[in-house]
Design a protein around this nucleic acid. Sequence first.
DNA 1: ATGGCTACGATCCGTAGA
Length: 257
Amino acid sequence: MDAVKLATWNVNSLKVRLPQLLEWLGAQRPDFVCLQETKLEDHKFPVAELEAAGYRSSFAGQKTYNGVAILARPPLAEVAAGIPGFADEQKRVLACTAGGLRVVCLYAPNGQAVGSDKYEYKLRWYEALRRWLAEELARHPRLAVLGDLNVAPEDRDVHDPKLWEGQVHVSEPERAAWRALLALGLQDGFRLFEQPEKSFSWWDYRMGAFRRNAGLRIDHILLSGAAAADCTACTIDKAPRKLERPSDHAPVMAELR
DNA sequence: ATGGCTACGATCCGTAGA
């Protein structure tokens, strides 16, 4: 099979970011793109604009919050939204099969604050995710899980571990939930390769965080063993974060041979 | 430094993100 380029990008409103996305698709020409925080109801999804750019779309959206989508050059099959058996109004999960690859797009709950209701929801969501991904792995040996997982797995994924210690995104239960995904046999695509120190995928809009590189690595590409064996690169593209009116997240990309 | 951005849907402020 030809090389396949995968990407994930939390666009923080597809309506606002569509021009940047189209520009970026033209420059990077990925084969699959998982989007998060589209914040668009399905009838407002820009199907025609993306089709003109060469992409088929599948999406599960809602007004104001959340919303996920998968863009793909090859035809999409077996499209499914949500985690089976986990009732959830929030549109955070979408899966499809295309080009010989099973692709899962995730927007994990933020968690707000350790101990809050939203934090408990985040941990329950992760437990349901783990159960489901175990089944997906059994069904699809060539599996890629991409998205905004809202967990910085290790201290090196945090600009200031001391400042963040115990906080949401780095708390031990969240990191344990991340490790439980790895224990299924998924691998952190980014760590398959040597990477620059202080590599992050999200920077707060406030306090000049991007300029100071005060970020977190919370957007991830997880690969099954078969997919990881074929992975030749995994990088974070900081260029879109430098644009005017950017998303607070940068895209993460991987290449499979 | 508990935020001093940004997007949204509601009105000129509250909620949420991370």
